[in-house]
Design a protein around this nucleic acid. Structure first.
Lengths: 240, 240
DNA sequence: CGGGGGGTTGATACATGTCAAGCGATGTGG
DNA sequence: CCACATCGCTTGACATGTATCAACCCCCCG
């Protein structure tokens, strides 16, 4: 196993394993003092159970939230009341950045499994920015990453064939997990087929069929919600 | 000629009409001194002609770009070399924020018509953030807006029916123009049907047919690339 | 005037949505 | 601990929407 991507594990201070800095996956531009200031800033929270909400549309924005462990989905409601999934969020990712501008959350964020969250009160974070200039750049980077992630998603959804969308979806998850240091090719989907279908803009039966088809082709292996990627290259070829 | 774009107005200091601050649509939290610092920062550029590139994938990131007048599209290339449109950008919007993190542009940005651009060197901008704390918050807000805009797009593309996607696409453009002060219901599409189809993940013939169908229904009126929205309510009902 | 790109429209094949039935896993209460 | 209910998932049959191929028109530009 000499996968280069495994090397891209996050270089964060081991001393700070469970704090917000780690969760934020900040580049390590902060010195010891700044780190302890960050630590003071972070609010602990009881872990979310599956189905618990972190915030809802219309909630006042107070904090950013970093996922320390677990996964979440965010969704909005259409006028006729239907759920529209806008994203899945994995360990190490940050939620709530779309609310900074108008001070109000614009989507619902719900836990897909037991999930531990780090709360970062935003006013304190902005205040700390003044004292720690490098934090400014870090925050800019985090938001930039989120924007790029979203653009990547848009690119993903813009294909006409469902096969491509599925492939891109799976590869996207795969890459995100690799970045976090996953050491095998197994995707442990925490969301339902319905959620995936909703997200990709296809019927959930089609998701099921596409996965089955890819399994027939030997590209992957399905065990309930565990998907073992057998042939990443071919998946990439499909994704285009 | 009563082109809506000519009416476009932003609520910023009139003294600063053609500078970067105006283009950025910053909340007016800056005082006179800060404004003049911003002005010094901004680089003028010759206007882009239709088809000119602002940046390309792989270009080193140096500046953010604010559109003062005109429109652009951004796109990436799939492995097999096909264009994949990731977004359209109108007057007053900012490009390049996805490049902050890795210092490299991740998409191509090309002008869809004659377009005037304001260049904001990013290192200078971050430096100015130190001296003008409120600018920090403003920049956070701008990036937050971009993130929310992208989420909105994701929401848009996640519907199974093409009719919904078209409706959401049109409404999205409509809202963005309204925000900039447009005073009628005419969308002046600067992109081709191909671009729209590519962006929405449908064949361009389908775009054409959907528009024709909506015209038959009396929802809108098509005159080449000018689309007159006659019944916004119904469009919203379709969008769901 | 001619050429070319963009746009519309039509015919056809095919992929995907929809409806329906059944299976499997999971969790709950007796 | 088991039985049951529920939810999620798979698979099949069918109808429909959309991609594809093709012809043609229109408008802009050289």
């Amino acid at each position: 196993m000499n996968n280069p991507k495994q090397e891209t594990k996050l270089k964060v201070r081991p001393a700070c394993e469970s704090c917000g800095v780690r969760a934020l996956c900040l580049p390590v531009s902060l010195d010891g003092e700044a780190l302890s200031l960050m630590d003071d800033l972070v609010k602990r929270r009881a872990p979310l159970k599956k189905g618990d909400y972190l915030f809802r549309t219309g909630d006042k924005f107070k904090s950013l939230f970093a996922i320390q462990y677990g996964s979440m989905k965010s969704y909005g409601l259409t006028i006729d009341g239907k759920e529209q999934v806008t994203g899945f969020h994995l360990t190490g990712e940050v939620l709530g950045m779309d609310a900074i501008d108008e001070d109000v959350h614009h989507c619902n964020a719900v836990a897909l499994e037991k999930t531990e969250i780090c709360e970062l009160p935003f006013s304190a974070l902005e205040h700390l920015q003044n004292e720690v200039p490098s934090l400014q750049h870090d925050l800019n980077c985090i938001m930039s990453r989120e924007i790029r992630r979203d653009h990547h998603m848009l690119l993903m959804l813009g294909s006409t064939t469902v096969e491509q969308r599925m492939a891109r979806f799976l590869l996207n998850l795969y890459e995100r997990l690799q970045k976090r240091g996953a050491e095998n090719n197994i995707l442990n989907l925490s969301m339902t087929r319905q959620d995936i279908g909703n997200y990709l803009g296809v019927a959930f039966e089609t998701v099921s069929r596409q996965l089955a088809h890819m399994q027939d082709e030997g590209i992957l292996e399905i065990k309930n919600r565990n998907i073992h990627l057998l042939d990443v290259d071919r998946l990439e070829a499909i994704a285009g």
